[in-house]
C-alpha cells in the first residue's frame, strides 16, 4: 500500500464511563474513497473529531498524512471537513461564509467553487440564519469540495439533501476521486456508500467489526438462494454453509448461503431442480444484519 491519508493506531476515546471508541486501528490509503458505517452512537463522529484534533484521544494515536492529528496547523492544510450538523453565523450570508472559509482554509479553487454553487443551486446572497438544514450543509460541502485538499472528511454530509442534490454530491465525490483526493465518508445512506466507496469500515459500539471492499463484503456474506423442484426437495439440514432454511410450499426451498457453495450445490444436484434464483444481498441487508446484533 502507498501513503496513508489517515491512520489510527489503537485509538480509544472514553467519555466518563462510556467507551465511545475502543482500540480503533484503521488505515485509509491516499486516493481511496472510504465509507465509514455504523449505527447511531457507534462512534463515527467521535473518530472524526479525534482525526481532526477537536477531541483528544484517551489512548492511541491518530495521524493524517503521517502527522499527528494534534498538529492541526499542519494536518488541516491537507484536509477539508464537513460536520454532521453545520452551524453558521446567522447574520453572515452564504457568500461571506464561503469567502471566510476560502481565506482561512487550505486553499480554494474559486472557479470550481462558483461552479459548485450553481450545481448545488445555493442562493449565497441570503443570510445563513434563513437557511434550511440542507442549505447549511451545502455551504459546508461547497467549501470542502472547492478546496483541493488531499483529504476530504465528510460526516453524514447528505443527511439533509434532497435526491437531486444527492446526485450532485455523488458527482462531486467522483470529481474528487479523479483528482486523486481521498474521501473519508461517514454515512447512513447505504446506497450512496455502495455507489461511491471503494472500501467500507463498519463500526459497532466503538469497535471496528469489518473493513473490506464492497464486493468482498458481499462475497463474505450471505447469498440468498431460492430453488424449486419438480420432485421432492432434498433435505439440506446440516449441509455446510446452509443457513435459515425453510420450505415455501411443497416444492420450494429457500436458504442463505454462507461461505463456499460447494456442499450445497452438491446436495441440490442430487434432486431435480426446476428453477434456481441466487441473489446477492444488498449492502443494506448486510448492514441491517450487523446493526441488528446488539447495536448500542
Amino acid at each position: 500500500m502507498g501513503v496513508s491519508a489517515l491512520r489510527t493506531e489503537n485509538l480509544s476515546k472514553r467519555y466518563g464511563r462510556l467507551l465511545a471508541l475502543d482500540n480503533l486501528s484503521l488505515d485509509v490509503a491516499a486516493g481511496e474513497v472510504f465509507g465509514f458505517l455504523g449505527p447511531n452512537g457507534a462512534g463515527k463522529s467521535t473518530t472524526i473529531r479525534l482525526l481532526l484534533g477537536l477531541a483528544r484521544p484517551t489512548a492511541g494515536r491518530a495521524r493524517i498524512f503521517d502527522t499527528d492529528a494534534a498538529d492541526v496547523a499542519t494536518t488541516h492544510r491537507k484536509l477539508a471537513y464537513v460536520p454532521a450538523d453545520v452551524a453558521l453565523w446567522p447574520r453572515m450570508t452564504g457568500a461571506e461564509v464561503l469567502d471566510l472559509l476560502a481565506r482561512v482554509g487550505p486553499g480554494t479553487d474559486t472557479a470550481y467553487r462558483d461552479e459548485l454553487i450553481q450545481r448545488f443551486a445555493l442562493d449565497v446572497s441570503k443570510p445563513a440564519g434563513t437557511y434550511s438544514t440542507g442549505n447549511r450543509q451545502k455551504v459546508a460541502l461547497i467549501a470542502a469540495f472547492a478546496t483541493r485538499a488531499p483529504l476530504l472528511v465528510l460526516d453524514e454530509p447528505t443527511s439533509g439533501l434532497d435526491p437531486l442534490m444527492e446526485l450532485q454530491f455523488r458527482q462531486a465525490v467522483g470529481v474528487a476521486r479523479d483528482n486523486g483526493q481521498t474521501v473519508f465518508l461517514s454515512s447512513h445512506q447505504l446506497a450512496e456508500v455502495e455507489a461511491v466507496c471503494d472500501r467500507v469500515g463498519i463500526l459497532r459500539a466503538g469497535e471496528l467489526v469489518e473493513v473490506a471492499s464492497v464486493a468482498q463484503l458481499r462475497r463474505l456474506h450471505h447469498t440468498e438462494v431460492a430453488a424449486t423442484f419438480t420432485g421432492t426437495p432434498p433435505d439440506l439440514t446440516g449441509v455446510l454453509g446452509v443457513d435459515g432454511l425453510h420450505n415455501d410450499g411443497v416444492a420450494t426451498v429457500r436458504f442463505t448461503l454462507n461461505g463456499s457453495p460447494t456442499a450445497a450445490l452438491r446436495a441440490l444436484a442430487d434432486a431435480d431442480v426446476a428453477t434456481i434464483v441466487v441473489r446477492e444481498q444488498s449492502l443494506e441487508e448486510i448492514f441491517l444484519a450487523y446493526y441488528g446484533q446488539n447495536a448500542r
Binding site: 481532526l52 477537536l54 492541526v72 488541516h76 492544510r77 471537513y81 453545520v86 482561512v104 459546508a140
Partner: peptide, 18 residues
Amino acid sequence: ADENARRLTLLLAAPVTR
C-alpha cells in the same frame, strides 16, 4: 457560545491552531 453552538467548527477545521 459560538463553540457550544458549533459555529466555530468550520473555522477550527481550517489550519488555525486553538
